[in-house]
Simulated assay, not measured.
Amino acid sequence: MMFISVDGGATKTVAVCYSEEGIIHGMGISGSGNYRTAGVEKAGKNIREAILRAVHRADVDESEITKFSIALAGVKDSNLKNELVSSIVDKERTSRVRVLNDGEAGFECRFPGMDGIVICPGTGMVSYGRKGNIFKRVSGWGWILGDEGGAFYIAKRALQETMKIYDGRSGIKSDIPDYVKDYFQINDLKEIVNKVYTNPPEIGSIASFASIVSKLAEKEDVLATLLMEESAAEAARCITSLRESMFGVEKVHFSGYGGLFRASNIYWDKIRKIVLDQHPDMIPSEPLYGYHAVIGSIYLMLKEENMDLKFDLDSEVKSIEEQIRRISEDERERYLLMH
C-alpha cells in the first residue's frame, strides 16, 4: 500500500509518498497551499504539483495510491473543501482524500499520540496544547490581528524600526537598514513603501527577511537582538498560556516546528529560557523545521489504517532530511530558501 500526505503552508507545500511501513519514497515541494494567501485555484494547483513531484520521485503511478491526507489551514470545515479537493484529484478519487486541520496534524510531528504544547512559528504564529481529548489553540489570528512572534511579525517590526532610524526617531545603531536595502533591492529606504504596500501583499517575501534578523542577532546586532527577544517573549506567552489554562501545575512537554528554527538557534534558546524561568518543571524538546510538519499527517494516516505501531518519529525525521537532499536545487532554493 502507498499513501500521499501533504502539508499546505502559507509559503510552501510539502508532499510525501510513503509505504504502510512509513518509509518515504518520494517528496515534492511547491508554492503556497493556503487558499487564503494564494486563492483556491492557485493553492489547488500548487498542491497538485507537489503531489506529482512526490509520486514521480517515488517511481510509482498515481493509481497505486491508496489514500491521500492533506493538512490545510481553515479548510477542514469550510465550504471550500470540496472545491479544493476536486482541483487536486480526479472526481472518482475524491473519496480517498482526507482533509486535516494543519495545526492538529502538525502537532503530531512533535508529540505523536502524546499530550504537550507545540508552537508553530512559520510565516505566522500559532500554538496548540493537547491534554487527553482536549485540543486548544492560542494565537494564529493572521498577520493583521496577531501572529506575534512569527516570521512576518519579526520582519514587520524590523521594517518599522528601520523607518524610525531613517527618520531619526531611534537612538539605536543597527545594520538592519543596510540589509533591508540589499534584501528588497532598493537604493533609498523611502523606496520600501513600493515593496511592502502591494496588492496583494507579498507576505511570504516580507516574512523571509526574519531569517536575516535572526542571523544579525547572533552577531550581536543590538536592534536585531531586541527584536528576537521581543518575538521569543511572544512565543513563550503562547506556551505559558496553554500551560496555565490546560495543565495547571502538571509537568508538560513543550516543543515546536517552523522555519524560524532553521535560521539560527537564538530564537529557540530565548523561548526555552523564558519558559523555564517561569515554569522550571516544564520539559523542553528540541524543535523541528517547517518541512517536518508533514510527518504529523503521516502518523495520522497510519493511525487511521491501524498501522501506527510501525511509526517511529526519529526515523521519519531522518527520512525527511534524506528526501530534502534528493529534491531539485530549484525546489530547495525557491521554497526552502536553501542556497
Rank of each mutant, 00 (worst) to 15 (best):
Met125Val: 04
Val126Asn: 11
Val126Ile: 15
Val126Met: 05
Ser127Pro: 08
Tyr128Cys: 00
Gly129Glu: 01
Gly129Ala: 00
Gly129Ser: 02
Gly129Val: 01
Arg130Thr: 04
Arg130Ile: 10
Arg130Ser: 10
Lys131Trp: 03
Gly132Leu: 07
Phe135Gly: 01
Phe135Tyr: 15
Phe135Ile: 13
Phe135Asp: 10
Lys136Tyr: 05
Lys136Met: 11
Arg137Phe: 05
Ser139Glu: 14
Gly140Val: 07
Trp141Cys: 11
Trp141Asn: 00
Trp141Leu: 09
Gly142Ile: 07
Gly142Leu: 10
Gly142Lys: 04
Trp143Tyr: 15
Trp143Val: 14
Ile144Asn: 02
Ile144Met: 08
Ile144Asp: 04
Gly146Met: 13
Asp147Leu: 10
Asp147Asn: 12
Asp147Cys: 12
Glu148Pro: 14
Gly149Ile: 12
Gly150Asn: 06
Gly150Glu: 09
Ala151Tyr: 08
Ala151Ile: 13
Ala151Asp: 09
Phe152Asp: 04
Tyr153Phe: 15
Tyr153Val: 04
Ile154Pro: 08
Ala155Ile: 04
Arg157Gly: 03
Arg157Ala: 14
Leu159Asp: 08
Gln160Glu: 14
Glu161Ala: 07
Glu161Leu: 08
Glu161Lys: 15
Thr162Gln: 04
Thr162Asp: 06
Lys164Arg: 14
Ile165Asn: 00
Tyr166Ala: 00
Tyr166Ser: 10
Asp167Lys: 09
Ser170Gln: 01
Gly171Gln: 00
Gly171Pro: 05
Ile172Tyr: 04
Lys173Ile: 12
Ser174Arg: 03
Ile176Ser: 03
Ile176Cys: 01
Pro177Trp: 07
Pro177Glu: 06
Pro177Arg: 03
Asp178Phe: 06
Asp178His: 01
Asp178Thr: 03
Asp178Pro: 05
Tyr179Arg: 05
Tyr179Thr: 03
Tyr179His: 10
Val180Asp: 06
Val180Glu: 03
Lys181Ala: 01
Lys181Asp: 06
Lys181Val: 05
Asp182Trp: 01
Asp182Leu: 11
Tyr183Thr: 07
Tyr183Phe: 12
Phe184Met: 00
Gln185Arg: 08
Gln185Ile: 14
Ile186Gly: 09
Ile186Ala: 02
Ile186Pro: 14
Asn187Ile: 04
Asn187Lys: 15
Leu189Pro: 04
Leu189Glu: 01
Leu189Lys: 05
Leu189Asn: 01
Lys190Thr: 11
Lys190Asn: 02
Glu191Val: 02
Glu191His: 06
Val193Leu: 11
Val193Phe: 10
Asn194Val: 08
Asn194Asp: 15
Asn194Tyr: 15
Asn194Cys: 09
Lys195Pro: 02
Val196Asn: 11
